[in-house]
């Protein structure tokens, strides 16, 4: 998502196809802010599902750290409503802080309650050798963390990171005979949108697009929430994690912060501990879900996992892309 601004390089589809030795094939970039990787996965899924294409390579990639300070803040702020949010000096992290403040106000939640999300993420990240942070944190660390955009502190925000992840999608009949892993399929897939500007929503604490996309993905997969074994949610900010749990229906409105969290989340560290490589995040989530369902998640393995839910968000669920992955026995 950031490559045109941070690297001065658009047109990554043709570039990657060329340098990956696949010059000539169909390739293009998808953009949906922080959900760009999920959008690429969705495009690949539709291509294979439609029968037009046999096999798709979905690549999520973000090069973040070549710019710092106000330049990277400006690049990230392009995901906001430029004319009515960014022009006021709003940034994605301060937009999340506005949501968090309102949530604390409306539901009278103790401020420290949000620590549950980074704590879970860091415990799980400690078992993931691909994670940016592989160390658990204590509640005191969370409670004493410096303020980034009040009331949101440093541990409420996932670290922006460089990263890349890839998955190959194809039809079952095209799998090579030598393929020995348990097979995983996309059982449900859905994209939903909402207003770009937070202020244009009748109820900003309702992640409507997240809710709709989960409902549609569940409907397509023909399963209930209770059948889902783990949820790779979009914890770019701890408030997003709470609102995503509520939107999916795992908890009531206003209860997303309550312990215990109703099912395993951020099982490989989530955005908070694995890192948030923006446009690559949606593809990371798919890789992590597949590792879980294949039984290759190591110390973080959820025994016998059958259904995994992944969801990536562009902005405060201005785009929500939800997938349900299923292990086929």
């Amino acid at each position: 998502m950031l490559a045109p601004m941070v690297s001065g390089q658009a047109h990554l589809g043709a570039l990657i196809a060329d340098f990956a030795g696949m010059r000539g094939i169909e390739a293009y970039t998808t953009e949906a802010a922080g959900a760009s990787g999920g959008a690429a996965l969705r495009a690949g899924y539709l291509a294979v599902k439609s029968g037009f294409v046999d096999t798709v390579l979905v690549v999520g990639v973000e090069k973040f750290t070549d710019k710092v300070g106000d330049e990277i803040e400006s690049a990230m702020a392009t995901s906001l409503d430029s004319d009515y949010e960014a022009v006021q000096g709003l940034t994605p992290v301060s937009q999340a802080a506005l949501l968090m403040r309102r949530y604390l106000h409306e539901y009278e939640v103790p401020r420290a309650a949000f620590g549950i999300f980074p704590l879970i993420a860091h415990v799980n990240g400690a078992n993931n050798r691909y994670a940016m942070f592989q160390k658990a944190i204590r509640p005191e660390i969370y409670n004493g963390a410096g303020m980034v955009s009040d009331p949101l502190n440093m541990f409420d925000a996932a670290p922006d990171a460089d990263g890349a992840a890839a998955v190959i999608l194809t039809r079952a009949d095209l799998l090579p005979a030598s393929q020995s892993y348990p097979r995983v399929r996309i059982a449900g897939s859905s994209v939903s949108t909402d207003t770009l500007a937070l202020h244009d929503r009748p109820d900003p604490l309702d992640f409507r697009a997240a809710r709709l996309s989960v409902e549609r993905a569940k409907y397509q997969a023909g399963i209930e929430l209770s059948q889902i074994d783990f949820f790779e949610l979009f914890d770019a900010y701890s408030i997003f994690a709470a609102l995503s749990l509520e939107a999916a229906g795992f908890t009531e409105r206003g209860q997303g912060w309550n312990e215990p969290v109703p099912l395993p989340i951020a099982t490989m560290g989530g955005l908070k501990a694995r890192g948030n490589p923006w446009g690559a995040t949606g593809v990371y989530q798919a890789v992590e879900a597949v590792l879980q369902l294949r039984g290759q998640a190591g110390e973080s393995q959820i025994p016998g996992a059958k259904f995994g839910l992944t969801q990536c968000l562009g902005g405060p669920a201005s785009t929500a892309i939800t997938n349900i992955f299923e292990r086929i026995d």
Binding site: D70, E73, S74, S94, L98, L99, R101, S149
Partner: peptide, 24 residues
């Protein structure tokens, strides 16, 4: 005021006024 926060890390063009308060 519906909600409010403080921006400490501003985008380009806003450095002179940081930190500043943004509100809904």
């Amino acid at each position: 005021v519906y909600s409010h926060t403080t921006v400490y890390n501003p985008p380009a063009g806003f450095q002179d006024s940081a930190p500043y308060t943004v509100a809904m």
